[in-house]
Amino acid sequence: MNITLRKFTISLTVMLGLLLSSTGMTQTNEIKKLAGYVDFGDLTSSYGEPNVEINLGPSMLQFASAIIGDDDPEALAVMKGLKAIRVQIYNIDGNADAAIGQINKSRKQLETENWEQIVKVKKDGAETHVFMKMIDGKIEGMTVLVAGDKDQAVFINIIGNIDPKDLGKITESFDVDIDIDP
C-alpha cells in the first residue's frame, strides 16, 4: 500500500475514533471533571426516582440556545458561558431527613473544594443553600440545595460561567415562569 493511501486510511481511522468516542457517556464523564460540577449523591433509596431530572450538556445547551438568535446578544453570551445544567427534584413527602443529610454531605464536600457559600437560610425545618465556585475571579459553577420546602428536595447545579445577576437575561429569553408549582 502506498504512503498516500496509508495516510488516508489513518486519517479515516482517527475520524472514526473521534466520532465513536463522542458518545453521551463520554460527555457525562467530561462534565464530572469540570470545576463547577457538584455530586448530589443518590437519594433514590429514600425517595424513589426524582420526579424531575435534567441533565443538559454543552452541545444540547448550544442547540437549545438557537432560540435566542441574534436578537438578544446579552442572553446569548450568558448561554454560551454555560457548560451544563443539572437538576434533580425529589418528592420527600414530609420527611426531609435524608435530603438534609445529603445536603450536609454535599456542603462539606463543597467547602473542602473551596466553594463559597453565598446564601444559607434555615427556617421551620427547611433549608436553602447557595454555593458558588470561583476560580481566578471567574464563576465556574453555582449550586442550589433546598430541602423541606413544599415537600420537595431541590438540587440544582449550573456549570460554567454564570453570574446570578445575569439569570434575568436568559429567563426572559426562555419565557420562564418563576411561579411554577409542580
Binding site: 424531575v52 435534567i54 443538559l56 444540547m60 445547551l61 442547540f63 437549545a64 432560540i67 445544567i85 437538576v87 427534584i89 446564601v119 436553602t128 447557595v130 442550589v144 433546598v146 431541590v154 440544582i156 449550573i158 446570578p164 439569570l167 436568559i170 429567563t171 426562555f174 419565557d175 420562564v176 415562569d177 418563576i178 411561579d179 411554577i180
Partner: peptide, 17 residues
C-alpha cells in the same frame, strides 16, 4: 432541551427568590 432549560431556570429563580 429548551423545556428542560425553562424548568431548570424556573426552579433556580424560585429557590433564589
Amino acid at each position: 432541551a429548551r423545556e428542560d432549560i425553562r424548568i431548570a431556570l424556573a426552579y433556580l429563580g424560585k429557590s433564589l427568590n
